[in-house]
Design a protein around this nucleic acid. Structure first.
Length: 272
DNA sequence: TTGATTTTGCTAGTTACGTCA
DNA sequence: ACTGACGTAACTAGCAAAATC
């Protein structure tokens, strides 16, 4: 797992960028942000900057460090059932404003910077997972029933209401949508399976019918077969667009050429 | 105006934690 | 106490569209 983070090139190494890593809102922008972070975080406190990294090894070391830090912070935060220390939301366009962000950044810097050694020690621990309270789940569920997707403002508001980070709300909605889709797929799959079974049965029945008719045709003269055939009806749609004149539609063999027999006792969709 | 780049939101797939039988 | 299954929070990679340069 950690090895995945090693691809970090150390571009996100200012104090700001440490936040960038431990902020759950930024995790999936890592690669993209790396391309531009040297510009974006020019104002960062220059404790560690890209310019200081002369070798790949150094970049790896610091990158790894930031990952550990990220994990430690996530850990400590989730352990309190709230991500209250982790409030920067850069992905949220309308989420707070620059000043608040800088302020939050400062706060984080002071907290994160306080105990690096310990961070490194504990940061190696696996991530902890917050369990949403029943009340939070209920509110989220209710909201999901209303709308399965939130805009940034709504996300922010809901997060505030639930004392969660917007990212957590976002993730919850993402997972919830995925679960809904999965369930729906399962239902559709079951429906298709039943439909398939029905069609298989119908196919089997029709094949038997054909066999019987063939056998009948061999043993009985044509004129005597007609009453038996008359018990079959033609599929309405075939009857409509089957073409041919009145004479042809009444012919046993011309029906067979353009239409198929339709058993009204079975599911119509199975045949059409 | 157009093409390149960046930002944002999303999905699909995966990982890992907590719970329960 | 241990364990495997399960639900789900959190994560990653990648895509598409919109915004910006």
């Amino acid at each position: 797992m950690i090895s995945q983070y090693f691809c970090n090139t150390g571009l996100t190494l200012g104090s700001t960028s440490l936040d960038h890593h431990h902020n759950p809102d930024h995790h999936h922008l890592r690669n993209r942000d790396e391309r531009k972070s040297s510009l974006r975080f020019d104002h960062a406190i220059p404790s560690l900057t890209l310019g200081l990294l002369s070798s790949e090894e150094e970049k790896h070391q610091v990158s790894n460090y930031s990952v550990l830090l990220h994990r430690q912070v996530s850990h400590s935060i989730s352990a309190t059932s709230s991500y209250s220390n982790n409030s920067s939301v850069k992905r949220e366009r309308d989420g707070g404003g620059e000043e608040a962000e800088v302020e939050a950044e400062r706060e984080r810097c002071s907290k994160v910077g306080g105990d690096h050694d310990q961070d490194l020690e504990e940061g190696s621990a696996a991530r902890k997972k917050l369990r949403l309270s029943k009340e939070q789940s209920v509110v989220l569920e209710d909201r999901f029933k209303e709308q399965s997707s939130l805009n940034p403002k709504q996300k922010q508001t809901l997060a505030k209401q639930l004392n969660l980070q917007p990212r957590q709300v976002e993730v919850w909605f993402q997972n919830r949508r995925a679960r809904t889709k999965l369930k729906q797929t399962e239902v559709e799959c079951e429906l298709l399976r039943k439909c398939c079974d029905t069609l298989t049965d119908e196919n089997k029945r029709l094949r038997n019918e054909i066999q019987e008719l063939k056998a009948l045709k061999k043993t009985v003269p044509l004129y005597m077969q007609l009453p038996a055939v008359a018990t079959l009806t033609v599929c309405p749609s075939c009857e409509q667009d089957g073409g041919g004149g009145e004479n042809s539609s009444k012919s046993l063999f011309s029906i067979g050429a353009k239409s198929h027999f339709y058993n009204s006792f079975t599911h119509p969709s199975a045949a059409c």
